[in-house]
Nucleic acid binder design. Sequence first.
DNA 1: GCAAAGTTTCGCTGTTGAACGAAACGTATC
DNA 2: GATACGTTTCGTTCAACAGCGAAACTTTGC
Lengths: 235, 235
Amino acid sequence: MSDSASANRYQLAELGALLAEPARAAMLLALADGTARPAGELAHAAGVGAATASAHLKRLLEGGLLGVHVQGRHRYYRLASDEVAALLEAMAMPRMALPLPRPAGADLALRRARSCYRHLAGELGVAMCDALLERGYLHTQSAGLQLLPVGVEALIHAGLEETHAEKLLRLSGRGCLDWTERRLHVGGPLGVAMTTAMLDAGWLRRASSGRALVPSADGLRRLGSLGVRIDPQRS
Amino acid sequence: MSDSASANRYQLAELGALLAEPARAAMLLALADGTARPAGELAHAAGVGAATASAHLKRLLEGGLLGVHVQGRHRYYRLASDEVAALLEAMAMPRMALPLPRPAGADLALRRARSCYRHLAGELGVAMCDALLERGYLHTQSAGLQLLPVGVEALIHAGLEETHAEKLLRLSGRGCLDWTERRLHVGGPLGVAMTTAMLDAGWLRRASSGRALVPSADGLRRLGSLGVRIDPQRS
DNA sequence: GCAAAGTTTCGCTGTTGAACGAAACGTATC
DNA sequence: GATACGTTTCGTTCAACAGCGAAACTTTGC
């Protein structure tokens, strides 16, 4: 044990160290919605100079948390994978059980619905997953989450575009744990595609800034027709 | 957004800083199986002096990651909650997708079956959850995971002690994501109780050191009769 | 009560690394 | 080609903190 245990110890410490700096944490959170951003913008988001930001980005890159896409004189940084996004969710979301930090008022919209890398998370994401499971539209199997034909029909009937929706059949999703709700929602390719379809249909829109997703009144009605219930709006 | 975003940034950084020190990481990992250990033992596990360990434990305690139980001249430290345990799982388990670290040979037993706080995780945990779902013994609902009467009967028929097994009906479990498998297994009170029952029945035993759980040949046979299939033993 | 054991507090030293400005580099624009 | 822009590299300064030994504090055992 001492062998693998001591390896794990350094592994954990290294990962922790990458997150331990507010400037780096801010950059990662700015990328948590799955977008790619140039170094200068991340420097601004972190509140540090360009030189400092560059050093931080280099560390995050070498640590495997970020990827980079070079385009001309810009370098667009993005999260390396949805695993990293899930990790950020697990660590940074306003949590209830941990005594550390309490959710602030400003976080309410974020808790209700947000993009987690590219798919819908938050109360609404969990509620939707619950509803689809309960009505037998979605199937949990060992290989992943699969939308059934009857589910696709229901989505089309609720108003999702047909060509869009039919592609969902061929995608499989991954369970993704919502750390504030401590419950499951749909991630992976299927989750991303469903979320994209809902955005296109106007059921949701991205908040002007940040990762929050705002459901429209129409969207809530249509989701309701699928059995999705969420608590009435709180303050 | 800048309000809650900047709050989240410091929150994330603080949590990262607590994990960023190999000595602290080692202590947390030593407690990841849910046991409570005195300060001196943790100092030894971390490879630092008693004074240093005490300072680290104080920080972890104030950070909300640990709890302490004073008994005479001993102070027994433990993880503050299963949330913390899940976080450690997410960050420290040998992962496949993140480029950071690859699993070493010594980790194989750990990947196969281990205790996550108090319940069974790893390939075996995931396979068991899959099997119970597939046979209709376990029900996913929004409130949590619930074992059905037919499932309890099956467990008793497979050899679990009757009085033990019947208590499982009254417990509800939580989905817990296995980060190496990226799939769900049963945690929460139900997961803990099922694991305890399997340990008592001799299907599993704790490894002499570390968090690995070793299934017995008999245990594997009995689990197999419940539909639990895992890959044949690798090297 | 006195010695031993477990733990924490205090004071000190040494290392790490975050931040900035200046300068260098590469790419787009005129 | 000259200039402006985005980014990285270099060198420096400064603050944070991990580690240890010594001492203090508390509980146990004789």
